[in-house]
């Protein structure tokens, strides 16, 4: 569960085909939140993050066909990560030239880029993991009954006591417990399926 699979080459190969709209949608759904959150973690303000995100999606669509698996750039994620950081660096440079002050430190970005490469890649992976989970939870939420989802959410995510939730939802404690496990089992399946398909 804790290791994330590398992006399947198939999706990337599909991405290189400009007519394959679905693959592109798939990519955007999964990676857009990941990249957005990474950008915010770099310290970009929301509007700026959206701007860079836009640029990044454009860049990916232009250059994905130049990327071939197993080359010196390594994994697709590594490549994506590098492109992201380069865009941020460029963006900060542009801002500096326009004499707009930003809270980002260009030097720190560049230095950090070299030294904590591993750290950043772990972060990137965990963001991908997070994004997968959110997509899965969106799916499962629609599939299960309202009460089941509520029971799961209150206990597993909000961290409330089973008995308290049971009283609030008008269920037995057993039912709440079963509901929670049921949703978790489904989430797990959904995440696995998503991983396979991407």
């Amino acid at each position: 569960m804790t290791t994330t699979p590398t992006t399947r080459t198939s999706l990337l190969l599909k991405l290189r085909d400009p007519r394959d709209h679905e693959a592109w949608v798939e990519f955007v759904i999964l990676y857009e939140p990941v990249i957005y959150r990474m950008l915010r973690k770099f310290g970009l303000q929301d509007a700026d993050a959206l701007e860079v995100l836009q640029e990044l999606l454009l860049a990916v669509s232009r250059s994905v066909d130049r990327w071939t698996p197993g080359q010196e750039f390594g994994s697709f994620r590594g490549w994506l990560r590098r492109v992201t950081r380069n865009l941020v660096v460029n963006w900060v440079r542009r801002r500096k030239r326009q004499l707009v002050t930003t809270s980002l430190d260009l030097d720190a970005l560049l230095i950090e880029g070299e030294s904590i490469e591993g750290d950043e890649s772990r972060q990137f992976d965990s963001e991908v993991h997070r994004s997968l989970f959110h997509r899965a939870s969106d799916q499962v939420r629609i599939e299960v009954q309202l009460q089941t989802w509520q029971a799961f959410w209150e206990v597993a995510v909000s961290g409330r006591e089973v008995n308290e939730v049971a009283v609030r939802l008008g269920l037995t404690a057993g039912a709440v417990r079963v509901a929670k496990c049921r949703v978790i089992a489904r989430l797990r399946d959904a995440v696995d399926k998503l991983k396979e398909s991407t």
């Binding site: 929670k180 089992a185 989430l187």
Partner: peptide, 11 residues
């Protein structure tokens, strides 16, 4: 169900 292993992670 996997709740035991994944509980904290999910939250």
């Amino acid at each position: 169900s996997g709740a035991e292993q994944m509980g904290c992670e999910i939250s």
